[in-house]
Simulated assay, not measured.
Amino acid sequence: MIAYSLFKEISLSGRYISMDLLNVSCFSKLNAPIVQIGKSVDGEIIKAFSIGRGATKVLMWSQMHGNESTTTKAVWDMVNFLGTQDELALAILEQCTLMIVPMLNPDGAKAYTRVNSNQIDLNRDAKERSQPESQALRQLFQNFKPHFCFNLHDQRTLFSAGNVAKPATVSFLSPASNKERDLTSNREVAMQVIVAMNNKLQELIPGQVGRYDDGFNDNCVGDAFQMAGVPTILFEAGHYPKDYQREKTREYIFYALVEALTTIANNTFPNYSTSDYFKIPENEKLFFDIIVDNANSVNPNIEIGHRIGIRYKEVLEDGTILFKPEIAEIGLLTEYFGHGTWDCSDSEENLPAEIMDLVLTVS
C-alpha cells in the first residue's frame, strides 16, 4: 500500500483552491515545463504540463467547475508521488505520458463558482465552445491526441452509493457517446479501468463507491470526447463522513488515480469485466447534511412526525468556505439519511444555534 501521507501536498488544504495558490505553492516547484494552453475570460493564464515519456497518452483536467477543488488537491498529491523513485511511479512514467491541466477554470475558482466569468458552465459548452477555456481544452485535446481522458470533478453531499445509508465518497462514469448509450469499444475500455479502481477502493471504503448517471448530453465534455473515440472517465469526489474539507476524499481520489494509471501502464484493463462496472450502485440523492427529528417539540408549527432536512450552502468569505445551513425539505423523509442527525426532544442534546434558529423560523 502506498504511504499516502508521504506525498500529500501540504500547501493545499480545504475547499478554496485558487490559481494564485497553485502558482505560489505548486507550479513554482514543479519539475516539468509549464505550457500556456490559453487564457480565461478574465485573462488568467491556463497552465498545463506534461510528465512521463511513455507511448500511452493520458489527458486529465480538474476544476472545470471552479468550486470543485478536491481533485485538484489529489492531482498534486499524485504528481508528488510520480516525482519519486518508487518502482510503481517509475513504471507509470515509463509507459505513459500525462498531460495535466490542474485548473481549467481559474476565474470560477477565484470566485468559488461552478461557472466561468461569463456565467457559462464549461461542461455544457462542448459543442459551441463559446468560451476561451473550452477552446483551450479542445485545442489541447486535438494537439495531444490522448488515448485516455480523466475528467475530474466534485459532487454534492446529497449523493448516496445506491439505496443505502452510505455516501458516494467517490463516483465514476464511463460517459455515453450516443442517446442509445451503446457500449462502444472505447466506452468499454473506460468501464474496465473503472472496475480496477473500484476494486481498489472497495478495500478502503467498502460500499462508498457510486456510479454516476450516464444520460447522454453531447454538450458535456466527457460525452464529446467519448464520441471522438477516446476512453473517457468521469471522476466525482464526494463526501466522506465528517470530512467537509474533503481531505479524506482527496486521499481516495489519489489512490484511484494511481490505480487507473497503473492499470493503463500495465495494459491490464482487458482483465476486467464490463459487467462488474454495472454492479457498482448508481448514485441516488438520499442524503441531507443534517436531519432534525421531533422538531415539533420546539416549534408547534411543524407537524408531529415530520423531519427537517437541511443542506449546507457553501459561501466564500475572506478566502474561506463557510457552510451555511438551509432548510431543503420538510416532511416524513423516511427514505432519506443524514450525515448528521439532531433530536429536538432530547434534552441532553442541544442543537447548534444556527440550526435551532432555522427550526424556529418554520411557520
Rank of each mutant, 00 (worst) to 15 (best):
I2H: 11
E9V: 03
Y16E: 11
D20M: 08
L21W: 05
S28M: 07
K29A: 05
K29Y: 06
L30W: 03
I34D: 02
Q36N: 15
I46R: 00
F49G: 03
G52E: 06
K57Q: 10
V58I: 12
L59T: 01
L59M: 08
W61E: 08
Q63Y: 03
M64S: 10
G66Y: 00
S69R: 10
K73W: 08
V75E: 05
M78C: 13
L82H: 09
G83D: 09
T84G: 11
E87G: 04
L88W: 07
L93F: 10
Q95G: 03
I100D: 10
M103C: 09
N105E: 00
T113N: 12
S117A: 15
S117I: 07
N118G: 14
Q119M: 12
I120K: 14
I120Y: 01
L122Q: 01
D125Y: 01
D125C: 02
K127Y: 08
E128Q: 15
E133M: 02
Q135T: 00
L137Y: 00
L137F: 00
Q139V: 06
F141H: 02
N143L: 04
P146E: 02
H153S: 05
R156W: 01
A165M: 09
S171Q: 02
F172Y: 12
S174V: 07
K179R: 09
K179H: 03
K179Q: 10
R181Q: 14
D182V: 14
D182T: 11
T184C: 01
T184N: 07
V193L: 02
V193E: 03
V195G: 11
V195R: 06
N199D: 10
L201A: 08
P206F: 03
G207R: 02
G207K: 01
Y212V: 09
N217G: 11
A228P: 04
V230M: 01
L234Y: 14
E236I: 09
P241E: 06
E247N: 12
R250L: 15
R250M: 14
E251V: 15
E251P: 12
Y255S: 13
V258W: 11
V258M: 09
A265T: 12
N266I: 10
F269H: 05
S275C: 10
Y277D: 04
F278N: 08
K279E: 13
K279Y: 06
I280V: 08
E282T: 03
E282Y: 12
L286S: 14
D289W: 03
V292H: 01
D293R: 15
N294C: 01
A295L: 04
V298D: 06
V298M: 10
V298G: 01
P300W: 01
N301M: 09
E303T: 03
I304F: 00
E314P: 12
V315R: 10
K324E: 15
P325H: 02
L332Q: 13
L333R: 02
G338K: 00
S345M: 05
S345H: 06
D346T: 06
N350F: 13
L351R: 08
P352H: 06
M356R: 13
L360M: 14
